[in-house]
């Protein structure tokens, strides 16, 4: 048996041991996982962003302007210095401001116009009509400028039914995705590790 399989099986069992109760094996695996995940993200972020987007442009391509985001990035470490913590707000402001600017047209296109267009595309079928009614009533439920009474209240109520269907479907789908992960781990333990199943 390969050493990798042995280690993976041990760590899998360590985490499953939490089903009995919190114990030192689980805590060991939990801390190891968090530590390794942080290390993994650091290495990947460095290789995919810092090197190609900061170090190479400055030192190989001579793009001096990239010193600015480098300095703004270093400002983030001012979080550790209470007297200079305001410097980190400049970097945060750039990310948030530029992110907000990018988000507005992107959201109008992807989350509003495209969704509305897809909703009104097919009125010839029953499904098309159901989709239109569901979208309209769901939006009515989230419209709080008018009191949910009378015909509008009834419309909003129908919206809640569709929302319940969405929540139920999402819940069922989430459980099944977790179950498939569980099956995967069981297949690993009983197949690759114990060779009980093929």
């Amino acid at each position: 048996m390969q050493i990798g399989t042995l280690i993976a099986a041990f760590l899998t069992l360590c985490i499953f041991s939490f089903l009995y109760k919190d114990n030192p094996f689980y805590k060991f695996a939990e801390h190891l996982l968090v530590g390794m995940s942080v290390g993994y993200i650091l290495v990947i972020a460095f290789n995919t962003t810092v090197t190609p987007k900061l170090i190479n442009p400055i030192f190989q391509e001579g793009k001096i302007v990239y010193i600015i985001p480098g300095i703004l990035g270093l400002f983030m470490f001012a979080r550790f210095l209470p007297k200079y913590v305001w410097l980190s707000r400049i970097s945060i402001a750039l990310i948030i401001g530029a992110g907000a600017g990018v988000a507005i047209p992107a959201t109008i296109q992807a989350k509003i116009l495209a969704q509305m267009q897809a909703t009104m595309i097919d009125f010839a079928t029953v499904d098309g009509i159901i989709i239109f009614v569901a979208v309209a009533t769901t939006l009515a439920y989230f419209f709080f400028s008018k009191e949910h009474k009378g015909w509008f209240g009834a419309t909003a109520r129908v919206g809640t039914w569709f929302l319940m269907i969405f929540f139920g479907a999402t819940f069922g789908y989430t459980i099944m995705s977790r179950i498939s992960l569980l099956i995967g781990r069981m297949q690993f333990l009983l197949g690759d590790f114990l060779h009980v199943i093929k």
Binding site: I108, Q115, I130, A134, T138, L139, F162, L163, F166
Partner: peptide, 24 residues
């Protein structure tokens, strides 16, 4: 999944979109 649930999700997306724009 492809009709009522997707339609409700679409309604939510439109609401989230409007919220994103106003917050931005």
């Amino acid at each position: 999944l492809s009709v009522p649930s997707m339609a409700a999700k679409r309604g939510l997306y439109i609401g989230i979109g409007l919220g994103t724009i106003s917050t931005s």
